[in-house]
């Protein structure tokens, strides 16, 4: 059981834990942001470099610091390791550079994008990024590709995190989704224009940190912050049936899996639940979904009485 210190918090973790997992055990104020790592997907992580941290002491046996910032999602902890994340101005600055790189080819179409409001890249850019770009060249663009009637692919928005590829690989059987080409022109795609029609293929929408893969049945229906998220479930023979419904009035505009505090799916849901059950009577509604009050989604949602006086009146 190695002991690791991250930003001054010491924790004992099992063998084979990464720095990122250890930081998440401590809490969200220590945990580095992630764009490609996904705890539910094997071999994810190591592409985006958002989670870089500085190792100031390698271990008790070898106390030398690591020479460069390391990707915390891919680095195992050692006994006596000391790590700094947000407390190091060097790391904060380096992360700013990483965000700038991620945004180089990302289009500025948040007003059009359906992911806006729950986009991890938007949050990351807001917290760490510059407010303008220093890039003089044309942004990389791709031709619009149709990958079926349920999932919308916007390749221009993709940051190549590989999460969808790993989902298609590990959650669905018979993978028809992958990355074509290399380097600058790499793009996610379905093989030879083959539409993804697997039962669990819709989960690629939930794992996508940006708006590259979005729900076509929700396309331009409403902005996320005008919908009301509620937890609901149904008896589903294929999946757990535990979902979040995004309602507007009585209409179910969108169904997604429930996401934990790291924005990761709690349980995978099937396409039938996600795309076909768009009526409130299909679902048993449990109650409102707790949304972080910093999120724009919680705007104009009144789940608490503002005036304590009304409570006394029992209104």
């Amino acid at each position: 059981m190695p002991k690791v210190t991250i930003d001054g918090h010491t924790i004992q973790v099992p063998d084979g834990t990464t720095i990122l997992q250890a930081a998440r055990m401590i809490g969200p104020e220590v945990a580095p942001p992630t764009m490609c790592y996904y705890s539910k997907l094997k071999t994810s992580g190591g592409y985006c470099r958002t989670c870089i941290v500085k190792v100031t002491k390698g271990s008790d046996k070898d106390p030398r610091p690591m020479p460069k910032p390391v990707a915390s999602c891919r680095t195992m902890v050692m006994d006596g390791m000391e790590v700094v994340n947000n407390t190091s101005p060097e790391i904060v600055d380096a992360r700013k550079g990483v965000v700038e790189f991620l945004l180089i080819n990302h289009p500025l179409d948040c007003p059009v994008c359906d992911q806006a409001g729950e986009c991890h890249l938007q949050d990351l850019g807001y917290e760490h990024g510059l407010s303008s770009t220093r890039y003089d060249f044309e942004r990389r663009t791709f031709e619009r590709k149709d990958i079926g009637d349920k999932i919308q692919l916007h390749m221009n928005r993709c940051i190549l995190c590989y999460r969808c590829v790993k989902t298609a690989d590990q959650v669905t059987d018979g993978r028809s989704h992958g990355v074509m080409n290399r380097g600058d022109v790499a793009e996610i795609s379905t093989y030879i224009e083959k539409a993804i029609d697997n039962d669990f293929s819709g989960n690629v929408i939930d794992v996508c940190p940006v708006g590259a893969l979005t729900d076509k049945t929700f396309r331009f229906k409403s902005r996320v912050w005008f919908t009301k998220p509620v937890d609901a479930h149904r008896d589903c023979p294929k999946c757990s049936g535990k979902t979040t419904l995004w309602l507007k009035g009585e209409d179910v505009l969108r169904v997604t899996a429930r996401k934990d505090q790291w924005g990761e799916v709690e349980e995978w849901i099937c396409n039938e639940c996600r795309f076909d059950k768009k009526k409130t009577k299909d679902w048993i509604i449990e109650g409102p979904r707790k949304i972080d009050h910093h999120s724009v989604i919680s705007q104009n949602h009144y789940n608490k009485l503002a005036n304590p006086h009304y409570k006394k009146l029992g209104k």
Partner: peptide
Amino acid sequence: ACGLCAVACPAEAITMTA
């Protein structure tokens, strides 16, 4: 129809359909 005006509106006077 990005909805930012509607979410900024303190009087909730703006509605839109995209």
